[in-house]
Design a binder for these strands. Structure first.
Length: 316
DNA sequence: CATGGTCAAGTGGCA
DNA sequence: TGCCACTTGACCATG
């Protein structure tokens, strides 16, 4: 197999979330799962308002999953913003708690029935390698929120439903940082541990697939997500094929996930854009070097980028 | 030395 | 309707 078995998109459905696609009062009809608020509003309106936003986000998650199935998508990354300010309360305290878990259950059952793979990618503030206790505590809290969500969705406790993060920091002392990462991994619940994966970084000062293999995978067994674009930014001269195959070898029975995006600077022919920035669309063939993988496309135009790519490359 | 942009990922809130 | 600020961390390019 030299092309991905599945192609997915992340968090936002362009066609469902564009106000211009709707008639009067478009905001009320927009389907999206990122409803949130700034701190000031949270302080004013409190947990009850967060609860209603979360409920609406969960309802819209179901709408997106429905759209996915009806439009031939079977791989999707769930937004990490489903529960605004979730670090500030317990789920059980939400006024809509019962309703929310019903919707999550409905989403999970539907995804399973329609054979959709669901994953997550908690944000760059998750630093399990940090030497600062407070940072680690915040990270664990955020990761546990993702684990709880996957449990409520009825997703397996395997990297099929991955919770993917970066090591993402070195502090000028990689052995210390990766040591911290592995030590703090032990503080996570089984819900997170069983699903956690680690992705190669895009900065020269951070970690390639091979470094993660040696310092993280060998010690705690978390599968490695190979990101093509990050590899292009930081490869230590290792060929793409080799790094991808090494990452794929860490997944056991579970189909590995890879991330794919292209350089925005090249796409827009604008050197002032950082090399790490993601393109709107993707253009090139995706070589999987014989590995069976599921490919998460990280392009700004989301599912439209996948559809366009499929047409161009004549892949259904 | 300080600021802004990048990752994730745009959205809320107010003029 | 437009525009700027917006929870978290860390790093890096630019001014």
């Amino acid at each position: 197999m030299n092309t991905p078995e599945r192609m997915g998109y992340a968090c936002i459905n362009m066609q469902l979330s564009q106000p211009k696609n709707f008639g009067p009062n478009p905001k009320a009809q927009k389907v999206f799962t990122n409803r949130t608020m700034i701190r000031r509003t949270f302080n004013q309106k409190g947990v009850d308002y967060a609860s209603s936003l979360a409920l609406q986000n969960c309802i819209d998650l179901y709408q997106i999953l429905k759209w996915n199935h009806e439009n031939g998508f079977d791989f999707f990354r769930i937004s990490s913003n489903l529960f605004p300010w979730a670090s500030e309360y317990e789920f059980e305290d939400l006024k809509d708690y019962e309703n929310i878990i019903d919707w999550l259950d409905k989403c999970g059952q539907y995804a399973i029935a329609t054979n959709q793979r669901l994953t997550t990618h908690p944000g760059p503030f998750n630093k399990l390698a940090s030497p600062h206790e407070r940072v680690v505590k915040n990270t664990i809290k955020d990761l546990e929120i993702h684990g709880w969500m996957m449990d409520r969705l009825g997703m397996p406790r395997t990297p099929w439903a991955k919770i993917n993060i970066h090591v993402g920091a070195a502090y000028n002392d990689k052995p210390m940082a990766t040591g911290n990462f592995c030590k703090n991994f032990d503080k996570l619940s089984d819900s997170v541990k069983s699903r956690l994966t680690v992705e190669n970084d895009d900065k020269k000062s951070l970690y390639t697939t091979h470094e993660l293999y040696d310092t993280v995978y060998k010690r705690i067994g978390t599968p490695l997500v190979f990101d093509y674009h990050h590899h292009e930014c930081h490869s230590d001269g290792v060929p793409e094929a080799e790094a991808l195959k090494l990452a794929a070898s860490t997944w056991g029975d579970i189909t590995p996930v890879v991330h794919y995006s292209e350089s925005r600077a090249k796409e827009q022919s604008d050197d002032s854009i950082k090399v790490q920035a993601h393109s709107d669309y993707i253009y090139r063939p995706i070589d999987t070097y014989g590995a069976k993988v599921h490919c998460m496309v990280e392009a700004k135009r989301k599912e439209l980028a996948v559809s366009t790519w499929r047409e161009k490359h004549k892949i259904i």
